[in-house]
Simulated assay, not measured.
Amino acid sequence: MSLKPNVSQADHAQGNSEADLVIVEYGDYQCPYCGAAYPVLKELIKEFGSQIKFVFRNFPLSEMHQYARPAAIATEAANLQGKFWEMHDAIYENQQDLNNNLLMRLAEKLKLNIPQFEKDLEDTALAEKVDSDFESGIISGVNGTPSFFVNGKKFDGGAKDLFELLRENTGN
């Protein structure tokens, strides 16, 4: 399966925006497997950040995880204040305590403008962004989280396998 649509300005990316290697994760903020992959991916970005572009797309499995979608919307609201990755990281680092109160506490800890954040949480455009990420995952053949794509092709492995792949590709 291949990634649809291709990575664009609408995506949240870190690392080297010009990199030849583009890794896309479809993730759910409440998924324990995504939680387990998070430190591995942090390490991956630390080691290979200059050689890869890492993209995160929302794929909240709302039927199983009641806080996954609110968390995704909260990261989009934080993004409007320039703190997408800070909120993304903070949620994964506190995943075991995830609920609506935690999202507000993290927003305060990240020194977001809270009235603005609360207003943005209600913005349908943010819910639509989360839904469009989710739909792109469905079209791309994502059936669980985390799911990874490397240069537009579905990657049949986990975060640790990505390490192996990058070591082979970069000669590290």
Rank of each mutant, 00 (worst) to 15 (best):
Lys4Glu: 08
Val7Leu: 03
Gln9Asn: 12
Ala13Asp: 03
Ala13Thr: 11
Glu18Leu: 03
Ile23Tyr: 10
Glu25Tyr: 06
Glu25His: 07
Asp28Met: 08
Cys31Asp: 11
Ala36Tyr: 13
Tyr38Pro: 02
Pro39Val: 12
Leu41Met: 14
Glu43Trp: 08
Glu47Asp: 12
Phe48Ile: 13
Gly49Ala: 08
Lys53Thr: 13
Phe54Tyr: 15
Phe56Cys: 07
Phe56His: 15
Phe56Gly: 06
Phe59Gly: 04
Ser62Gly: 12
Ser62Glu: 11
Glu63Leu: 15
Ala68Asn: 10
Ala71Leu: 06
Ala71Tyr: 02
Ala72Asp: 03
Ala72His: 02
Ala72Phe: 00
Glu76Ala: 05
Glu76Gly: 04
Asn79Met: 05
Leu80Asn: 08
Gln81Ser: 02
Asp89Arg: 01
Ala90Ile: 06
Ile91Gln: 00
Gln96Asp: 13
Asp97Phe: 12
Asp97Gln: 11
Leu98Lys: 04
Asn101His: 10
Leu103Gln: 02
Leu106Gly: 02
Ala107Thr: 04
Ile114Thr: 07
Pro115Asp: 10
Gln116Leu: 15
Lys119Thr: 07
Asp120Pro: 01
Asp120Cys: 01
Val130Gln: 00
Val130Thr: 07
Asp131Lys: 08
Asp131Ala: 12
Ser132His: 08
Ser132Glu: 15
Ile138Tyr: 07
Ile139Phe: 11
Ser140Cys: 09
Gly141Thr: 14
Gly141Leu: 15
Val142Gln: 15
Asn151Trp: 12
Gly152Cys: 09
Lys160Pro: 00
Asp161Ile: 10
Asp161Ala: 12
Leu162Thr: 14
Phe163Gly: 05
Leu165Asp: 05
Glu168Lys: 14
Gly171Asp: 08
